[in-house]
Amino acid sequence: MPVLRFDAVSKTYTGPHNALNDISFSVDAGEMLFVTGHSGAGKSTLLKLIHLSERATRGTVLVNDKNLAKVRGRQVALHRRQVGVVHQDHHLLMDRSVFDNVALPLLIEGVPSKEIGKRVRLVLEKVSLASKEKTRPSELSSGEQQRVGIARALIAQPLLLLADEPTGNLDPSLAAEIMGLLATLSAQGSSVIIASHDLALVKRMRKRVLVLSQGKLMDDIAPEELAP
């Protein structure tokens, strides 16, 4: 059973501007895929629909077989707990320590404080930031900040992880490191959807690729179809 399914989904903003037009695809558990296309192609809108920051104008978005059009009120918050998000500009709380930033999803979820400590340290080890738990994000490099963002997304053990240009500000070696982390997460069972316009990086990763252009799904490329 797919974790995520788009059935003939369209999103129109006032203007009118068709950000997405009749998109259909599905994502299996543990699958990692890229959504690529030029600026304005609809990559971010697609992620917003999954995260319920926006609602589809037409069509159906199903997450774990649940129709997101029917998710309302408090259920929106509960849905978002299943969906981890990694941003290009990290969206970290600069007045809190690395530990506090990573612990935030667990605090929101209502995990007991003893368990929070254990889980935060475990995930910080995974992203090689165990020694920086008391450091403020502003004292970290951009790559380290991105790893904090990933650790925060990983800690709640999301069903789906959405990454919007996660390597946009990083040099190639750091970008590869971040992609490696996301691939590991996918191998461990979470579905990972990465929006990126970095075609070189997308080709290097050899994963499934959805190509968007002007809100339309132009191509759905399987990993084996990508040239080495």
Binding site: R74, L78, R80, Q82, H91, L93, L104, P105, I108, A156
Partner: peptide, 15 residues
Amino acid sequence: EEIAVMQQLGATDGF
């Protein structure tokens, strides 16, 4: 911004 981040992480209005 802090509130927006919390909302994205699934914080309820009550939280």
